[in-house]
């Protein structure tokens, strides 16, 4: 029984999270003493995949799959499940992957386990560690489903290089009919998205107004980071809703999270807590965020942020 990874791509390029899911899949396949397969929709250059231990690349090239659709992609994967013996399907934690994972488990009548952060503790019984209670606890979850579909939290496993010589198989899969049609996709202009970012620079009400976000964007640009904001900032319309991170906004699990002028309300912390390193810049030494942070600077953000940008630029 093999392991199958869904390798998400966009504009003919794999997402970074695909390499992480593949690294996890390879490690799991080794544990299970089996092979690791990957399914690829309309991404022609698959060379980079062989750095992460893949055994077989299942390529679907069909314009009907140009736009992501949870239903169409799920049914295509079900076709693969009919011909290959698969025990575990691994996905990332991107919005599309989670959309796909839950629907796929519905049509295959199997379990879907999200927010997985480690390899299974044991294979029999199959026990996974996942985050729950919005990062305030972990659960050791036993999975008793023949087919197991799991999503890995981004940046939880990392990339593990592992050269392989994969077989490439082109699959001729028909797309299911659906009356669900995409009318338009509005892309955000920012260069790095929160979901893909290794570093997130986030700012709150302490910035005093939307006109002061230039320095936040400049800091993010210097670090190659995504920008984010707290809930009050998006509620007041200073920044778009898509930048809101926290319990009711987007979850963040970056390697580095820099919070500027954010006091650290419990709902905010809940959404960003799975980030590895947290840096807080705030002029209030009593701000609750300092209790959750790894590093802190007490002081005026309007002085610290420009100085930090200069120093980071000088370092390069």
């Amino acid at each position: 029984m093999s392991v199958l990874v869904y390798l998400e791509s966009e504009d003919n390029k794999f997402k970074k999270s695909s390499y992480e899911t593949l690294s996890y899949g390879k490690a799991l396949a080794d544990m299970m003493e089996t092979d690791i397969f990957g399914v690829v929709f309309n991404c022609s250059n698959t060379d980079s995949l062989k750095n992460y231990g893949i055994n077989k690349i299942l390529k679907i090239d069909n314009p009907d799959f140009n736009d992501f659709s949870a239903k169409k992609f799920s049914h295509a994967i079900v076709d693969i499940l009919k011909s290959e013996k698969i025990e575990v399907v691994i996905l990332s934690s991107s919005a599309n992957s989670k959309f796909l994972g839950a629907y796929l488990s519905g049509i295959t009548d199997s379990s879907y386990v999200s927010n997985v952060i480690e390899l299974p503790k044991s294979l029999n019984p199959f026990i996974l560690k996942r985050t729950c209670f919005t990062n305030k606890a972990f659960s050791q979850t036993e999975v008793n489903s023949d087919l197991k579909i799991i999503s890995i939290t981004s940046n939880s496993f990392g990339l593990i290089e592992n050269l392989s010589d994969p077989v490439i198989e082109s699959l001729n899969i028909n797309c299911v009919d659906s009356n669900h049609k995409i009318l338009n996709i509005e892309k955000e202009t920012g260069s790095v998205t929160i979901a893909d970012a290794e570093i997130v620079v986030s700012a709150g009400r302490g910035l005093k107004g939307p006109e002061n976000w230039n320095m936040i964007e400049a800091l993010a640009k210097t670090l190659g980071a995504a920008t984010a904001c707290s809930k009050p900032v998006s509620d007041m319309g200073w920044r778009p809703h898509s930048e809101h991170v926290g319990q009711t906004g987007k979850p963040v699990s970056s390697n580095l999270y820099i919070a500027i002028g954010i006091s650290g309300a419990i709902q905010h912390l809940a959404g960003i807590n799975s980030s590895k390193i947290k840096v807080v810049i705030n002029n209030d030494p009593e701000a609750p965020f300092f209790k959750a942070a790894d590093y802190g600077v007490v002081g005026d953000a309007f002085e610290i942020v420009p100085a930090l940008i200069e120093k980071l630029k000088a370092r390069k």
Partner: peptide
């Protein structure tokens, strides 16, 4: 199909390093 066998709370966080 799944069962939470055991819950674990995160390790208490070490004190923030102030710069």
């Amino acid at each position: 199909l799944t069962e939470d066998k055991k819950f674990i709370k995160p390790e208490p966080k070490s004190e923030v390093k102030l710069v």
